[in-house]
């Protein structure tokens, strides 16, 4: 991909982000932070590339360490979001 193609994706994604985030209900702002935190750990892609590459042992170990950190975030972030979201209930379901 050329730089300009990547930049286009980035700029358009910023606009998508702007509109999508404004539509998030304020009641769910804490789960929003937890889930954005989980998805920003997509940086694990970079970590996996480094961990899988031959050539520099140091780079490989740095990559493996980053894989651990990002995995904590991915699993922890999604799990804690799921736990929070499961608590949000409507009136009908609470009243037995």
């Amino acid at each position: 991909m050329t730089f300009i193609a990547i930049l286009s994706i980035f700029v358009l994604a910023c606009f998508v982000g702007y509109y999508v985030v404004w539509s998030v209900t304020p009641a769910l702002h804490t789960p929003l932070m937890a889930v954005t935190n989980a998805i920003s750990s997509v940086i694990i892609v970079g970590a996996l590339v480094a961990a899988a590459a031959a050539g520099s042992p140091t780079a490989k170990w740095l990559g493996l360490a980053a894989v651990v950190l990002a995995s904590i975030n991915i699993f922890g972030g999604f799990a804690v979001t799921a736990r929070m979201l499961a608590m949000y209930k409507k009136k009908e379901r609470v009243a037995k």
Binding site: F10, V20, M33, N37, I39, S40, V42
Partner: peptide
Amino acid sequence: AMIITGALVGSS
């Protein structure tokens, strides 16, 4: 995937 996510989280 990383760029889209970065932009989403950054804006958020």
